[in-house]
Amino acid sequence: MEESKQIEEILKGFQPERENLLPALQAIQEHLGYLSRGAMEQVAHFFHLPPSEIFSIVTFYNQFRRTPPGRHPVHVCLGTACYLMGGDLVLDAFSRELQIKKGDTTEDGAFSLESTACFGCCNVAPVVKINDQIYPKMTSGKVEEVIINLRDKDKTDKNNHDEP
């Protein structure tokens, strides 16, 4: 189904009142993975709000992203415990290795980088979550290995997929 049709379906579940704006944006992102320019325009039209205001809101909150997430979305925890244990250094390391900034996706679409606050396993801080898998006690030194392993896995998956 076309993106705009899908968004239309999602918006049907909401009244065009201001208080429903954030839940509607969340629902669209939940479904499509991100908020495209077209999606923001559609939301603006539905809520009778200027597109500039939707853009303002979407860029204000960390939870919204405007680019499609990568196949392996990297979530680096910057909650208090993880931050104190060097979570920001881990984030820097991912940013350096993947050559993207926080919130962006690599050109090949493999990885995207995000910071979040607390997965509830502070005892193994600093923590990184990739594809629902928790990487405990991360260090910047381990970052390269994690990325290489995922890239290798992608390659073998592709080969297995191509062969039969």
Binding site: R37, M40, E41, A44, P50, P51, S52, E53, I54, F55, S56, T59, F60
Partner: peptide, 15 residues
């Protein structure tokens, strides 16, 4: 409208 937050906030147009 404004976009982004804190020190990064800028005045801009839609997208």
């Amino acid at each position: 409208d404004f976009a982004y937050r804190g020190f990064e906030m800028i005045l801009t147009t839609f997208d």
